[in-house]
Write a protein that binds this DNA or RNA. Structure first.
Lengths: 146, 146
DNA sequence: TGCAATTAAATTGTGTACAATCAAAGCAAA
DNA sequence: TTTGCTTTGATTGTACACAATTTAATTGCA
């Protein structure tokens, strides 16, 4: 009853599935730490971009995070409501919305630096393995990004 | 202005982010192929389990897919509506819901075998790299799974 | 110049994801 | 056997995620 023709559609032979499951499970591990900051994972990675760049358009945020305006608009409004960023139209190009981190948003960074340290332990990869995984993932992302 | 203290919360230094982005981007690549089968990615991986096991409880599906009943219940109802599976309570234990693939669901497998072949090309990894990635992902999943 | 094509966000609708809670069923110890 | 604990799915509420459409602004070109 073993039909090798069908091996290709066995869950255990997929590469996408462990990728999908792994991402979800790791994000679940983040939750208790991010709850302390009152941030979701999506809000957290968005703030990460702003901590580094201070000011970005929605388009730039979308490119950095692989998210579109349909996802970003409500997340940005939520973070604006929390006082971590401001949203305003560009005077050069009224179509562009400029997102800028506030002082309160900057201050959050001080508490957020603890999150990667707390998370680091749970992956259980050596630094070589982590580097290898990192390289493979960005190789795939680079290939898909066109 | 380079503050190495903050390097840990740069997006580019995260391992979870490329994992999350990669999973999403690959699932996006699946979409045109899965559209031909009128399946979403979640529906597709659920059917994958049923193609192999024929019959599973919701609990077993949840363990296989890393999903809970809050996600599975609506997906199962949708697939039941499409005629690909049936849902019925176990007579041994009325708490358990037994999910069984139908003939129509089995038939879908014949068309689904083409999907992995069509997808294989877009990853652009050698088989060594794919094996390495696979191993690393399951190592993480194994560690997180307790 | 004037208008068609393009671009940037926002909106709408569908489909997950998951925490928290609930209800029903089974189990277990006194 | 009855009460309390556990297990299993379903439900509810919140938060993405993205395709498709809409709106407003800008650009390109005849």
């Amino acid at each position: 009853m073993d039909e090798p023709i069908y091996d290709a559609i066995k869950l255990e032979n997929q590469l996408c599935f462990p990728l999908y499951a792994c991402a979800k499970e790791i994000i679940r591990q983040y939750k208790p730490h991010l709850d302390e900051l009152d941030l979701t994972y999506t809000q957290y990675i968005l703030m990460m971009v702003l901590w580094e760049k201070k000011t970005q358009t929605v388009k730039e945020l979308g490119q950095a995070l692989y998210l579109d305006s349909g996802t970003l608009t409500p997340v940005l409004k939520k973070l604006e409501g929390k006082g971590y960023l401001t949203r305003s139209r560009s005077t050069q190009d009224e179509r562009s919305l400029i997102v800028t981190v506030t002082e309160k948003g900057e201050a959050l960074k001080e508490r957020a630096v603890e999150v990667p340290r707390k998370m680091g332990e749970c992956l259980a990869l050596t630094s070589e393995e982590a580097g290898l995984l990192y390289g493979l993932l960005y190789k795939i992302l680079g290939r898909l990004n066109r």
